[in-house]
Structure formats: C-alpha cells, structure tokens
Design a protein around this nucleic acid. Sequence first.
DNA 1: CGGTGACAACTTGTGTACAACCTGCGTACC
DNA 2: GGTACGCAGGTTGTACACAAGTTGTCACCG
Lengths: 246, 246
Amino acid sequence: MPDGHDADSIFCDLRERISLLDHPPGSLLSENRLAAHYGVTRTPIRRALQRLEYEGLVTVARGIGTVVTPIDMVYLTQVYAFRLKLIDLIGELSSSHVAPADLALLEEQRRAVRSLPVPISSRRLAEAYLRFHEELTRAVGNRPLREVSDRYFHQTSRVWVQLLPELDRDEERASAAAEIDEVLAALRDRDMIRVAQVRRRYFERCLRRMNDRIVGADLEFAATRSEGGDDAPHDRRSTRQRERTK
Amino acid sequence: MPDGHDADSIFCDLRERISLLDHPPGSLLSENRLAAHYGVTRTPIRRALQRLEYEGLVTVARGIGTVVTPIDMVYLTQVYAFRLKLIDLIGELSSSHVAPADLALLEEQRRAVRSLPVPISSRRLAEAYLRFHEELTRAVGNRPLREVSDRYFHQTSRVWVQLLPELDRDEERASAAAEIDEVLAALRDRDMIRVAQVRRRYFERCLRRMNDRIVGADLEFAATRSEGGDDAPHDRRSTRQRERTK
DNA sequence: CGGTGACAACTTGTGTACAACCTGCGTACC
DNA sequence: GGTACGCAGGTTGTACACAAGTTGTCACCG
C-alpha cells in the first residue's frame, strides 16, 4: 500500500510480515502481487525475495511461485542448538558498547511490552518482543556474531509466534517483560556476560514452555522432513510443499 | 569464456576467483564486462553479485561499480575470533556423518596438496587447500553451523592467500598436508571432537605464522577502518575505497 | 465412467531499453 | 595560473517484454 519503497525496505517489511505470520508458512508470494502491493515493478521485489531466500525464509520455485518456508522442526532443532551456543558467544566475544540512545530504544520496547492492553494480543506481544530483540542484537560487539544471531533469530522466531495463541499469554508477557528488565540492568552495568546469562536462561525457559505445549497438543506445524540432500553443498531448494493459503 | 552458465555457477566461480585473488581486493567488477565474459546479460550477473554482496565479498556502489571488498583487518580480526569459537562448536554440535564418497574426495585433495611440483605455486596450494576446506565443511552435521562456517571462511581465506607469497611455502604446504592427514584420521574414527581439536590447533598456528609475518613486514593490505556506522542494523555498505587495479 | 492429452493461466528467469547517479576531464571565467 | 562549471562516459537501479516452466482444467477418446 505505501509507496516510496526500495528493495531494502521491502525486504525488511516482508521479513517482519513473515516473522509475524502475516505470510504464514507455506503460503505463496507472487512477485506480481507484491509488485502491485508495494507500487513498484518486479525488479526490486525480486531483489528482496532473493535476500529472503538466502536468509532461508522463502524458497523460490520456477513455474510455481515463491513459497514461505514451512516450519521444519527437524531443521529448526538444529538452529535452536546453534543459537544456544551463539548466546554463550555473546558473553565471550562482546565488549559492550551500547549507546545511551540505544538504551532509550530498549526502554521504549520495555514500556511497550508492559503496557499491552489486558486481553493480550498475540500479534502485539510478538511485535514488541521482535523489536526488543532487534534492538538488543545491535548491542553485540562482534559483527559476524551479530549478523549470524540476527539471521537465525528470524528463522526461529516464527515458532514462538505461531505457538503464542495456544500458550498462556499473560505468562509469556510477564516472562518477556522480566527478561527485558534483567537485560537492561545488565546492559547498564556494561556486563555482557550477564546479558548472555540472562538471555540463555530465558531462552531455555521459553524452549521448555514451548516443548511442554507441543508434546501436550501434538504440534500443529507438521515437521515436514526435507529429504537429506547431501550432494548439494550450500543449497536449500530441496523442500517442496504446496498447501497454499490464498 | 565458457558459456552455459547460470547465476549460481557464476556466483561460485566469482567467489573462488575473489578468494584466489584473481579479482584482488579493491578491484572494480563491471556488470557489463562480467556479462560479456560469461556470455550472458547483466541479469544473472546481478543476481550473483547480490549474493556476493550479501556474503560480504563485494560492495555495490551506484554510479561507481561493484568493488571487491578491501581486506579490513580490523573487521577480519573479529571474524577470526568468531571462527575460533565456531571451530569449537563443530566438535560440540556435529555428530559425524561423512559418506565414504566424501572421504574419497578429501583423499583426493590430500594427494593434490602432497604432489604439488616443487617450486610451490601459491595459487595451486591455495586452490587445493580451498577445495579441501569446502569438502570438509560438508562434514559438519549442524546445518546452520555449516552455513556460517562456510560463509566466514570465505571472508578470511583471502588473507592467507594474499600473504602466501611472502610466507615459507614449503612450510605452509607441509602444514596443510599434516592438517589434512590428521583430519582424515579423525574423520575415519567418526570423532568430530578430535577433528575440531585438530582444526583449532592448525588454525591457531596459521594465525601465529601470519601474525609474525605481518608485524615483521608491516602488512601490505592497509587496515582500512570502516567508520562505525551503528545506526544501520544489518548494513555493510559503509566501507568506501577506490584503489582500482585495472 | 476412467484415462489422457492439449491448452489456458499462472509462475519465475532472462533480455533489453531507459532513468538516476557518479567520476573525470575539458573549458570558460576570474 | 587557479577555480568553478558543465558535459561526456561509464556505472548501477528500474521498468517492461518475452522465454521457459508448472499446474489445473476440460474436452475428447477408449
């Protein structure tokens, strides 16, 4: 709808929409429709989609369309294990260098989470926590670690967002608020090791809550196994699902 | 020169050429020239260059051209620290699953390194070691870790390749051969922890050799500092150098 | 009624032309 | 002589047209 978009902002917008399940896993994104939506031609759209494909959030299929990557828990389990290790690295590699302005932005998200209206909207909570995480990522001093953390966070965030309606949203909001508080306190002390410890603790707790919910309700997102194509080194064009949504 | 190229193979070819310094840091890559070289139009070239930009190997500048990312030792020091941690993760996260065919390919590279003609060509040695590394990366069981290891290896490999002519090439060859031997032995025992230990040992030794050479000969690749643009979260379009080569 | 083949409608990949932008050089002016 | 301006050449970004590919439908035939 809003015009005045370049390829970069389109990428960011699409990534957020995918993370927040506006474009649910398995849905088809047509370049023509996106071009009409953003008021540009297919060229910038293709650039954004290509980057999304590289980030592992969509898979383009010639003649079919660009499909939002389904949630593959077999793969995402590997991502979770990897992210757990990355969080430890944050404490080991980051010499904290947070600007006061960034701290203010984090305070903003803290207020946003704490002041959500009482019938808590999954969408609003997810949006606020995503923004908190994006701001927090910028506090990571080591650039490669920062880029990688950002990349794989956006691959796994959809799991929590999708599970959120079935979780205790009051509990989730309280957990997020407490995490932000503790992170902020550690950041003010310039203690990235403590930040990492806090992050790890809440990360593990979140995993446990989701796991309890999954084994209880027999997860909705089917763990679509991708055939283990080990012949192609760095290629992620193996999964091939349909299940269109529109 | 060779036709029958799609965007993907062009990307791989360009990445190897950049790693092997066929396109030295700071050189300008014109989309038109590349299109003529590969016998296609600018469209697939642009796709390959966009991926290279995302990998951090080139930076496109409108009106200027696409410049091969200069070697920024300030940044690459962070990458080295990160890769050191990644190597440890290989031991922690990888349940080894190497196919016999892959082992055979690694044997191939072992022979290639050991049978280099005696006035050792820097280029040939670098090429053989790069191929060994690419094959070895495929043995990493955790997919995110594999992707990240591959990405940041290609960002730092140029440093060693560029320094190679000034190093003792017999020593470098011997070191590479010994590393491959020990890695192969550990792989045959399905012992990824030992693989990681070996990798880390040789990685640190290589760093030390390069560091000795650098402080001795006052490195040629100027550590071009990039202004710390902390306002753009995931953006690497800050470095802006010229120093064209062709 | 079941199967099959052709076709229409959609998708993404590529080629081409043009617009926006930057650099460097020549020239006019001070 | 020095400086500022303007234009020519080259670069990447975008828009548009066409080629290649896939899917679903529907008529047709056994």
